[in-house]
Nucleic acid binder design. Structure first.
Lengths: 194, 194
DNA sequence: GTCTATATAAAGATAGAC
DNA sequence: GTCTATCTTTATATAGAC
């Protein structure tokens, strides 16, 4: 698979379009022609950049994950303490949903997991694992209790937070509501770090 | 739209197949031919029972929701107290995911909301609204605090619980894990009713 | 890097016989 | 209620010219 770092400007536009389409309609919900129309080129030109849809989406998911992880690094550098970091983490989901109720790329692909080409499924799985590790670390070092948090307790709370945020996007859409992740963070933050 | 209550045994088998296929692959992830193969008939026979895919899935979602609400009534009759009722509620999600990691019908349809025929979207929206109302009621009457729960606080907690459960199915799939909703209920229950 | 033209398969759906 | 045959559209993908 082509790595997203060695990609031309034209191919980048294709990835941008694919990302938005996946976030709105899922893997099975868009076509090469949809991308072509958005980018302003023809269908076969897409194949010039990405031979198959599986490769295209795998590359896009990889780029999405990389950017997300970069954002996590940024949060650790610019925010101090558990609450601020979890709040900044939640804001990433919030900002995504605020754009026409877009879902997390790996969230919507996760629901389609059984149907996904293996390379795409691998990206999704890695994305969640790394998010959980990051959250468990932040929760573990940021909590305010007297005893240090047990490793598996930190992991449980990380799982809860991630699921609540992903689920809030899913449910928010089903409710046809503009309020997504934000509806779920209030109160939860205190619980996670208590 | 045909109501599911006036449906023949043959049509019922079609709905059963459609339900499983939606839970595994989503609205855009299966075809009339997939149903036909499962039921053991041919494609046009499906159209005899349900003229369009939109009608078929709308009827299926309606049946799913009705059964789910019946289960909620059952929980209120057979379980007493907030903790037992929330536990029984979570078990409904658990049982679904335990079947080949199937998702909640309205959960997976919710992620596809932007792409859904309006009648199907209506069913999904109604499903979530009614679930939130039921949960808010159980949480409100079941909590152990000294002061009665404020209405909007009960609704916030209901939203958190629903999103956590739906999200756990989504994330569990992305992780290729057999552990779904169960990973998220522990600890949360105490928080909801505190 | 983009195009026209085309191959091939699958989708939702209809007509009409049994 | 189910079938064969068929229509129409759309999908992913390829060949080869510019």
């Amino acid at each position: 698979m082509k790595h997203f770092s060695e990609i031309t400007p034209a191919a980048e536009k294709v990835l941008d379009a694919a990302e938005g389409l996946v976030q709105r309609f899922g893997y099975n919900g868009f076509s090469y022609d949809d991308i072509a129309r958005q980018v302003g080129i023809k269908k076969p030109s897409i194949h010039h950049h990405f031979a198959t849809k599986a490769q295209l989406v795998a590359t896009m998911a990889q780029r999405f994950a990389q950017r997300f992880f970069d954002a996590l690094d940024g949060i650790e550098q610019t925010h101090t303490g558990g609450p601020a970091r979890l709040q900044a983490y939640a804001a990433l989901f919030e900002q995504t949903y605020a754009q026409d109720r877009r879902l997390c790329v790996c969230g919507i692909l996760g629901t389609e997991a059984e149907d996904l080409p293996p390379p795409v499924g691998d990206e999704v799985q890695a994305f969640f694992n790394r998010n959980l590790a990051w959250l468990a670390h932040v929760i573990s070092t940021g909590h305010t209790g007297k005893k240090p948090l047990a490793r598996d307790e930190a992991q449980r709370r990380a799982m809860l937070f991630l699921c609540a945020l992903e689920g809030a996007m899913m449910v928010g859409r089903g409710l046809r509501s503009d309020s997504g992740p934000q509806t779920v963070t209030q109160g939860l933050m205190g619980y996670l770090l208590a």
